[in-house]
Computed example of a mutant assay.
Amino acid sequence: MNTNNPKYRAFFLIPPEVQLLDFAGPAHLFYEATLYGANIKNLFLSMSATHEEVTCAGVSLGKLQPYDAFELGPDDLLFIPGLEGWIFAEPGYAAKNQEFILWLKDQYRNGAQICSVCTGAYIVAFAGLFNGKNCTTHWKYLEDFQNRFPQSKLLADRLIVKDGNLYSSAGVSSGIDLALFILEELFGPVFATKIAKAVVIYLRRTDSDPQLSVFLQYRNHLDNRIHQVQDYLAQNLAKKTNLDSLAAHVHMSPRNLSRLFKKVTGITVGSYLEKLRVERAVQLLSDGSKVSAASLACGLRSSNQLRSLLKKHTHSLPSEWQG
């Protein structure tokens, strides 16, 4: 591979107070891609017009190249990672970084692929690039983002959104999913799967997946007993369980557990267990497990029971069951 004449260039912006995983995750996947023969050159940019060192989370990052030393085109990708929320919340943030924002708008007009991770969407939005465009950001900032950028078409509960040459992703680790998504676009699914395996990513998430796994949802409460029940269900999907045994596990009556679980999570114990089983089954089937094995791993009696559950919750079946 001739790295002096790369087919693609991947630029990773390193703004002050950058979220480390937001840029390191995608950067590592693109580095790994070069080891597998992808004709890509990876570069790291300062948000200022000078070479500088950036400190974030107590770590100093140096040897950054000034952003205005480059002009990007259709074969270039620019990853814009998230940063600490208080920074872009400060009045005058856009004005203070106006030269970079103008440069960013020029690169977009040149056809460069602009890829925001987490709150990096704010920087793209300050440039007006999301006006009239579909996009997403971290779920905690959805309301604030929509209020500040009402012309954007913000999509909630979406992991990855692509609109033309604009990409946006949800929070933190979704930058890894976005990088795999783009690598698949550039080099195909077989190549992207090799990279996922190389970095030990067992479950690849796509643009149709929600931001939060059901294993993380319904946990925004402070009741430790209900957290214990949720932990037990998630860790013991293959075991048969009932309300009486769950209640005994947390020293409650079945009636009290049912009432409290619904109160703090918004759904019943049974509905929550079904959601866990559906997500786990889809994961296993996507990874190549047989239907019978997936059924047993999810605590179901038969393949037909799994099929009924998937119909109920996803309204679709794996391709091998269709027709």
Rank of each mutant, 00 (worst) to 15 (best):
N5F: 06
F11P: 11
F11A: 11
F12H: 13
P15I: 10
F23S: 07
T34N: 01
L43S: 14
S46P: 13
S48L: 08
S48P: 04
E52A: 08
C56H: 02
S60E: 00
G62D: 00
G62E: 08
L64Q: 06
Y67Q: 00
G73W: 01
L78W: 05
F79Y: 14
I80L: 14
G82K: 00
G82S: 02
L83I: 07
E84F: 04
Y93S: 02
N97T: 04
F100A: 08
F100C: 00
I101P: 04
N110E: 01
G111L: 02
G111F: 01
A121K: 09
Q146W: 04
L155M: 02
L155I: 14
G164V: 03
L166K: 07
S169Q: 05
S169P: 06
A170I: 03
L178E: 03
L180F: 12
K194P: 02
V200P: 10
R204L: 04
R204D: 07
R205L: 05
R205M: 00
Q211S: 14
S213E: 01
S213N: 14
L216M: 12
R219F: 03
L222F: 00
N224V: 09
R225E: 12
R225P: 02
A234P: 05
K240I: 09
T241H: 08
L243W: 06
S245P: 02
M252A: 12
N256E: 11
R259I: 13
R280S: 15
A281F: 09
A281N: 11
L285T: 02
K290E: 14
S292H: 02
A294I: 07
L296V: 06
L296G: 00
G299A: 09
G299I: 06
L306H: 05
R307I: 10
H313C: 15
S316W: 07
